[in-house]
Design a protein around this nucleic acid. Sequence first.
DNA 1: TTGCTCCTCACGTCACGTGAGGTGGC
DNA 2: TTGCTCCTCACGTCACGTGAGGTGGC
Lengths: 276, 276
Amino acid sequence: MRAKVTIGEFSRAAHLSVKTLRHYHDVGLLEPREVDPDSGYRYYSEDQIPQAQVIRRLRGLQMPVAEVRSLLATEDAAVRNELIVAHLDRLEAELAETAAAADALRDLLRRPPSSPEVEHRTVLPTAAVAIEATVQRNDVITWWQGALGELEATVRAQRLTATGPSGGLFDSAIFQEDRGSAIVFIPVDGQVKAIGRVTPVVIPGAELAIIRHHGSLSTIDVAYGELGAWVMKHEISIDGPLREYYLQVDFDDLRSETWETEIGWPVFRADAEAAR
Amino acid sequence: MRAKVTIGEFSRAAHLSVKTLRHYHDVGLLEPREVDPDSGYRYYSEDQIPQAQVIRRLRGLQMPVAEVRSLLATEDAAVRNELIVAHLDRLEAELAETAAAADALRDLLRRPPSSPEVEHRTVLPTAAVAIEATVQRNDVITWWQGALGELEATVRAQRLTATGPSGGLFDSAIFQEDRGSAIVFIPVDGQVKAIGRVTPVVIPGAELAIIRHHGSLSTIDVAYGELGAWVMKHEISIDGPLREYYLQVDFDDLRSETWETEIGWPVFRADAEAAR
DNA sequence: TTGCTCCTCACGTCACGTGAGGTGGC
DNA sequence: TTGCTCCTCACGTCACGTGAGGTGGC
């Protein structure tokens, strides 16, 4: 025995508003079992309630409607559950991120205003193995981790010798337009075979203003801000990719306090300006 | 010495996209220090970077733009920091909520499909002390906790005797339109003085289909669904407020497994239908 | 002078909510 | 029959992103 009920009644049992149910019909997320062709009245069946509840739960956990829909289209219940659990795991990681960001902000508020120590450096062209890609701002960190891992594996496999710390070049467009070119590299000596995404390159030389960031990468934006302010104040900023050098790393924990990172900002006439 | 820089350069140092900076100008969240009246070019000052960074952090923590703006308008730095810390605390509570919701969903997926035990009950009109209000869906739980607390305090203060478990009446509109009337009550004997929000009322009688929900209130929607499906299937659902009775409570922890709650759904002709 | 940077609209996105104006069902 | 429920537009909200078409500065 299966009853058809109006949208209002279904709304009460599913704990979804009438407006929301109509919206879910429009976008094909939850279709009423029957629609009266004359009146347009939607009729739901009592056995659609569990479905509606799962939708409500997933939306409550910020899963996008499109994702919920494709998830529910999955026939195999086991696969479906796996997808949900995968989302929950991602969510958990995000929660940890947010909690860390909150901590970082609390720290920031307590931090005394520091006068940054900025150093000038002339960097010469350097042979290296590198991975390059066009990345979205939000994907940078994930991409960067994977790419550095692949580079290190390649260096080990080909028995190359690193001639300096690993680093990265980040196109301004990544910050200005949320999308741009990025390169990570490890300087090496000798003959390199291109494998996978890894290619031999020469990292171009540059005049850089350099600041050192101690600790978690989640607060590196502060160092960027200090360095940016400094080069602006001295009116020596020029266009070009921003650089990072990873002096002390801990790839297992990006929020570890053991990280030591240098940030380089392209400038001109370093020597003349340094005397100011 | 204070330099004026273009939007693009400021963007790199602040790690905010050019589009975002223009948007923040439009909505008055972060105004450039200077705007060229001819070209419309925006010029930022290097000393605006810390401000931009705080904005970026707060937005990263989902603080609405309007809230960020009013926060930054606060002159007193100590007050400002307090507001931020308050937001972080709220956020933390939300994170815990989300984590619990994720757990609840995992449970839901593991739960075997139960055949709900539904009972019919004729409830007689009952004298009670009560608090009533028009509530938004999102505020229901907060309101409900406060109101029940106030009721209990009143019962103790006036040395009244509870004649049954506390309960609530929730207008359908709360679920159907996200906003409606809600009442919480404690049945009592004897003379009652109206104090604060508390008034003496008679809770109307009703024919109810009742289901019992064991454990955390965060999964009570499942019980609502089961009960709703049951009354729909038996075609005896009628309009009227949904009811709850709190048999075992633990106000310190809404997610405690010790909660015992009855949900009542208005129905008609309970006896005739019960025979089906 | 070229090419890059900056500008202003206007519209799109996401997941609904709001409200007007009207009809259907018990 | 009344009043409640349901319907369909069309537009609003929030925080930007996208893209067209055009101008300014080194």
